[in-house]
Design a binder for these strands. Structure first.
Lengths: 238, 238
DNA sequence: CGGGACGTTGACGGTCGTCAAAATTAGTGG
DNA sequence: CCACTAATTTTGACGACCGTCAACGTCCCG
């Protein structure tokens, strides 16, 4: 067994509890290995794919942090999501066989390339893999609905609080701290995602700091009172 | 062949160019018929499914008009979409085996019930069906991203203009007028979907009428200047 | 025909966007 | 390693957009 094949094996990956292999049997796992055609490394700022590019593969994030964003012809820009290790990029491309957004690495990153035709073929053989792919797409839909709720009905403080709690919760699921994080994106990118201007993002961070809820120093954020943040998002739980 | 089996046949349905059967062969079509377990009729205001309910089936809308909405524990409410004939409801339920939103008929409606396990099974046999299901889910993701763009970066007039253009375009694809439509939802539901208050929706309709762009009388809307509407959404196309 | 849901319009105020300037940090090349 | 420039962030002042509250009008359904 050569070094390369070890490196690109799902059965060997420390993300197998988070990523595509989640819940698959040993045998299915080794079959899945054959789907992972290659890895791809990206430098910070580099695009994994761009709007309009031909769709051929999904990408599983092995390390690093991404944003996906739409850019309209009249210059409007919308960050549609931030993705971290174990999450899947590229689902937008299936419907028209072309990507409909840009995926950009916000720090040096590495992804597993999953040729979609191969994935579809294998998922016809393994119903567990098939169902898992359906779940991944459904999860993205549910996530998007949550963002709509945020954008459609929350105010600036609520949006930022919800954003921070979501980030830290996902990081914690990956073994990081529940109370500290490094923001990989700029204030402008946060603002775009949350439907607010970068100045408002900055002001809201400052407000949270004055209130003693968080500690912010540039990209470093320490959450000092998670409950207070949660109450901002949802002041009157049922 | 009894009347019932004729009625629930995709191969017989006048929506086959829009709905799940799109692009399938005759043979695949007749196989798909076996998935359509039954039909379900709903009265206006009735829920097809509710948040928290066990997920078992997708639903293809045969006639009528639906909304899907989230309701949070603190009473926040967000309409996440409006669906019309030929569109699929229930994709949100796959990930957690429970529905995560409410689907409510906004007029008397009829849906085809598609047991999801059966659909998965058949899609393991027919790669065309498999790919089609992936496309449907991907389309929903892309649609949601478009709504995020709208909610995150557009102002009230732009949102409403985009909304009207989207509705009329989908209706036109179903053989209806490109310039006239009946709104099946209230101002409040439009507002919830678009992230604005019902009063703002009403005012914006009035504004469009003053400008001679549309004619509005309650639920009836006539679009008198499609280009003007398009320019409101996107004033400077590339 | 009457009541309730829905829609319209007006006045006012708050939230957040806009514009501007300064401070801090990051990146680049010598 | 340091100097220099660009990028990012912070903060302030001001105003626009849209939400809030209220009153009135209209439509639909029983």
């Amino acid at each position: 067994m050569d070094t390369h094949s070890i490196k690109v094996a799902c059965s060997n990956c420390n993300l197998r509890e988070l990523c595509l292999p989640m819940g698959l049997s040993e045998q299915e796992l080794s079959q899945l290995d054959s789907v992972v055609a290659s890895r791809r490394r990206l430098k910070r700022g580099q695009a994994l794919f761009n709007n309009g590019e031909k769709f051929s593969s999904l990408y599983a994030i092995r390390s690093g942090f991404f944003k996906t964003c739409l850019t309209t012809s009249d210059g409007r820009d919308q960050v549609t999501g931030f993705q971290m290790m174990g999450e899947i990029l590229g689902l937008d491309g299936i419907v028209h066989d072309r990507h409909t957004c840009d995926a950009v690495a916000l720090e040096d990153a590495e992804v597993c390339v999953l040729p979609f035709q191969h994935l579809e073929q294998l998922s016809r053989e393994f119903s567990a893999l098939q169902h898992h792919i359906h779940k991944i797409m459904s999860r993205e839909i549910v996530r998007d609905h949550g963002v709509m709720l945020l954008l459609g009905s929350m105010r600036a403080e609520e949006r930022l609080a919800a954003f921070l709690l979501n980030l830290v919760q996902r990081l914690h699921a990956r073994g990081f701290s529940q109370s500290e994080l490094i923001l990989r994106m700029t204030r402008e990118e946060i603002g775009s995602y949350l439907g607010m201007k970068l100045e408002t993002v900055s002001r809201t961070f400052s407000k949270f700091m004055e209130d003693g809820i968080i500690q912010v120093k540039q990209r470093y954020v320490q959450i000092k009172d998670t409950d207070a943040l949660a109450r901002i998002v949802n002041p009157h739980p049922a």
